[in-house]
């Protein structure tokens, strides 16, 4: 009989260990079925969280072979097929404090989420007694971000959070900021966006993990782009992230291509570049990877490129 081998990371509050279990293979089951079966059949001390079994409560996020899944929504067959193995390792989600076994702590995340004021700040057009009128079109702006079930899988897969000191906001927190900033009934979008700017918005690595792993398909990376665009509209342009982005925008406008030699200076300024990037620049020059005297010429058809910019500015962003 085919057996599925599970290695589950345990934690009792003091020590960590991996424990092995086996289940007879059954077709058409979920990862959550495996966890529940192990607890019921072999080990009542195994701790994990789950409730609704319908991808609504968001409580059963877990890592399997290093990749984060919502246990109730994920087919065991799919996972076995993905990793081409009958040996699976279960671990708690990344970037969360572990309470016990696979159960993680949400309180610190909720405290962090309060920074973006994840509630509606009523606009003058509406009030508690009279209610708010929202058009169907405006509702559609908040429909997708409202799908978030706070499962934490985006945070578990976020490459910035994995190396960050804890300041950077989890993708689901950025989603909350976005959700209220674009809500037509909200009177103060900047109150949601300002804390995002102050908490390392430009440190997102654009790895696409959050949008890829979200079990609800929320386009989280597009929201990061929106929040950055809004920060620029709010005048927050004197920072490395915005200056770096503008270096690309301006180089394409003038020449069509990036001037890599000038990029650090455009991002960090001459002083910081001169004081911090000299060893880097010297090793690049030594290997012929940077030619400080090379000034790229404008590409063939640059006038057409500039017409695109003109259209974007005059028609699209009017």
């Amino acid at each position: 009989m085919r057996k599925i081998h599970f290695k589950i990371k345990r934690f009792d509050g003091n020590k960590e260990w991996y424990q092995d279990y086996q289940l007879a293979y059954e077709k058409g089951k979920t990862i959550l079925w495996a966890l529940t079966s192990i607890r019921e059949q072999f080990d009542p001390t195994l701790v994990f969280t789950s409730a609704c079994r319908h991808a609504i409560c968001g409580s059963c996020g877990v890592k399997v072979n290093g990749s984060s899944y919502l246990a109730c929504k994920t087919s065991l067959d799919e996972v076995l097929d993905t990793f081409k193995t009958d040996y699976l390792t279960f671990e708690p989600m990344g970037s969360f404090e572990v309470i016990k076994d696979l159960a993680v702590a949400w309180e610190p995340k909720m405290e962090k989420m309060e920074k973006v004021k994840p509630w509606l700040i009523p606009s003058v057009e509406g009030d508690v007694e009279g209610g708010f009128i929202q058009s169907e079109e405006d509702f559609h702006h908040i429909a997708s971000p409202t799908d978030c079930i706070l499962c934490g899988i985006c945070a578990s897969e976020c490459n910035q959070l994995a190396v960050n000191d804890g300041t950077y906001l989890d993708p689901f927190i950025l989603n909350r900021a976005y959700r209220f900033a674009v809500d037509s009934r909200d009177g103060s979008p900047e109150e949601h966006i300002r804390p995002v700017i102050e908490n390392e918005l430009w440190k997102c690595m654009h790895c696409m993990q959050c949008a890829t792993s979200c079990p609800k398909g929320i386009p989280l990376t597009e929201q990061v782009a929106f929040l950055r665009q809004e920060s620029i509209r709010m005048g927050e342009v004197n920072n490395q992230g915005a200056k770096h982005a503008f270096a690309f925008v301006n180089d394409v406008r003038t020449k069509g291509r990036l001037n890599e030699t000038m990029l650090p200076i455009k991002t960090d300024g001459l002083f910081k570049t001169a004081t911090t990037k000299v060893p880097f620049a010297l090793r690049m020059i030594k290997k012929g990877k940077i030619n400080p005297f090379h000034m790229p010429k404008a590409v063939e058809g640059i006038k057409g490129v500039q017409e695109i910019y003109k259209y974007a500015e005059e028609v699209e962003n009017r």
Binding site: V224, A225, R228, Q229, I232, G241, A242, H244, A245, F246, F248, V249, V252, I308, Y309, A312, E316, N317
Partner: peptide, 9 residues
Amino acid sequence: HIQDVDDFL
């Protein structure tokens, strides 16, 4: 990077 300034562009 450019979409962080202007996604149409």
